[in-house]
Design a protein around this nucleic acid. Sequence first.
DNA 1: ATAAATTAGTTGTAATTGCAACTAATGTCA
DNA 2: TGACATTAGTTGCAATTACAACTAATTTAT
Lengths: 150, 150
Amino acid sequence: MAEQQKTLLILERYMPYRLSIVSNKVSSIVAQTYKDKFALSITEWRIMAVLGEYPGASADEISLKTQIEKSLISRAIGNLLKRKLVVRNVARDDKRRSEVTLSKAGYEVYAEIVPLSLQYEKELLDCLSSEEQTMFSDVIERLYEHAQTL
Amino acid sequence: MAEQQKTLLILERYMPYRLSIVSNKVSSIVAQTYKDKFALSITEWRIMAVLGEYPGASADEISLKTQIEKSLISRAIGNLLKRKLVVRNVARDDKRRSEVTLSKAGYEVYAEIVPLSLQYEKELLDCLSSEEQTMFSDVIERLYEHAQTL
DNA sequence: ATAAATTAGTTGTAATTGCAACTAATGTCA
DNA sequence: TGACATTAGTTGCAATTACAACTAATTTAT
């Protein structure tokens, strides 16, 4: 008695979907904090985070790091400049590039957000054992590398 | 000789960031296929995927499942109706609700996309051992549950 | 039974986004 | 050297999105 098997996708087990649900949930929780306490959008915060790690990064480098469209980066930098959270200087060796840096005020905001972010990450991950955390971190890395080759 | 430790966040190791990068990469690769071959947006495809699994789901249920804004769902269903990929009927027991179902044509598109999606998922995950896949699946699940409590 | 609250879904509108076109600067190479 | 291609960044604009306001139906509670 052969059963007719209909084509079916179980969304709840489909990894691209699950990844996006988890990632959106996590990001939106974090985003809410940035927005409420510092009036920063995710894009603005990501830019500042890159600059904290790579002072003097160009718009293009930031776009690469964050995977955010360069026009969005351009406009977000504009806002951060208006709010004097970052400083921009034309690069000496290439007048097309601009090097962006956190201002003093920007760094102060950054220094306030970082511990909150790390604390949030810690709380998020504390549902995993430390072996799981290590493995998860490794797996995410490989998935990313591998996805790029597909 | 105490070192001055500046506050610093290493983005490449920050899990919310890594999750979003991987998820976006994966989703955008998949999205390109839907768009090129079937002229479906991610939202439209997600709705169809829910309907494949839950025929007769309401807009609200779809919104819950996909975590997509209900106004987006409403407009996307409007488009799918125009393209006759779904059918909508007012629910008998509650005239506010509408029950949405894949049409014959909709199911044909669905039945064509599902194997492609499963194949893509398989290729994505084949950089992981089967133990890793199991662990990863379990961890994603727990992270999602846990994130909601934060 | 009925007034008030809640829920499903739609729609108006302002803000955000993504893409392509554009300017200016630099790199390539015959 | 000088034409052509490439790169960094900005901007115009159409499309998409998010939020709130709204209608209609249902539920709750008095």
